[in-house]
Simulated assay, not measured.
Amino acid sequence: MKVPTDIEKAKTKNEEEEIMVNAIQQCLEDESCLPLIKEEIKLKIQCKRVESGKEELKVDQRRRVQYSLTEEEVFKRNRRKEQNRRSAVRTRSRQKTRIAELEKDVNSLEEDQCSLEQTIDSLKTELQTLDNMLKIHKCSQVKLLSSCGSSIQLLPTGNNLAILGGM
């Protein structure tokens, strides 16, 4: 392991100060403290590595280069954006059409349900009427045996039963 000399220490301190000044400037430009925090973390990591006897990591300090797009790239990007817009319009149109169809189906099914409920109600009423008629018919066929052996028939007359035959 190589022990740093005083000149090397001063050089690294100047470099570290310069890096921190650049980070502060970057913070002011970006209106964010993130570059300063990153640099501080890098320095702490470097210090811990040196203290533990490992060699320093060499970190590339260059800023990311922003490339400007060529005319062809701009044209392709704009064409892609326009295609996406048209695709979004088509998708929204299909969704609206589908929703309209589903609403129409719902309305149709609700009408069918109302019709079927009315049919059920009328059939229940008819069933009740037929059930009442059946009860009256059964009652009219009842033959009562009297003590003298003659049979009495009951006939429906409105809501009352009339007795046929004599006692």
Rank of each mutant, 00 (worst) to 15 (best):
L109G: 00
S52E: 13
T157W: 07
A162D: 09
E17D: 13
T119C: 00
S147T: 15
R62V: 01
E40F: 13
L57N: 07
A23R: 01
N107F: 00
S93K: 11
Q113C: 12
Q128E: 08
C27A: 15
I41P: 02
S87K: 10
K81Q: 07
D105F: 06
Q61L: 14
N132Y: 08
V142K: 10
S52Y: 12
Y67R: 15
L134A: 13
R86C: 03
E51H: 03
T129V: 14
R62C: 06
I24H: 13
L28Y: 02
S150G: 06
L145P: 03
I37H: 07
I41T: 12
T70C: 11
Y67H: 08
P156M: 07
S151Q: 12
L36D: 06
E39K: 07
E110Y: 05
D121T: 14
K96H: 05
P4M: 09
I24M: 08
N22Q: 14
K2L: 08
I152H: 15
R86Y: 02
Q153T: 10
R80G: 00
V59D: 12
E126S: 11
I136Q: 15
N160Q: 08
E126G: 00
L43P: 05
V65A: 04
N22V: 10
D30H: 06
Q66L: 12
N160I: 02
L164D: 01
R79K: 04
R49A: 00
E101I: 04
D131Y: 04
S115R: 01
L144M: 05
L123V: 05
D121R: 14
L130E: 13
E110I: 02
E117C: 00
K104A: 08
D121E: 14
E126L: 07
D30Q: 14
G165R: 10
N160F: 03
Q128T: 01
T70A: 02
Q66V: 15
E29C: 03
K124C: 01
K76Q: 14
S146E: 07
E56F: 01
I19R: 15
N78D: 14
G166K: 15
K13C: 08
R80T: 12
E39R: 06
R49Q: 03
R86K: 15
L134V: 09
E56G: 04
N132I: 07
E51Q: 13
M20L: 09
R64Y: 11
Q113D: 05
E51K: 02
E126R: 10
C148K: 15
S122Q: 10
S115P: 03
M133Q: 03
A23H: 02
L164C: 08
Q61M: 11
D105E: 11
Y67D: 10
V3L: 14
L116D: 03
L145S: 14
L69C: 05
S108E: 15
E16L: 09
S68W: 00
R98M: 15
K81S: 04
M20K: 11
L109P: 00
S115A: 06
L102P: 00
T157E: 13
N22W: 09
Q66I: 13
C33G: 10
Q118M: 08
L164T: 07
E55P: 01
E16P: 04
N107Y: 13
Q153G: 01
L130I: 11
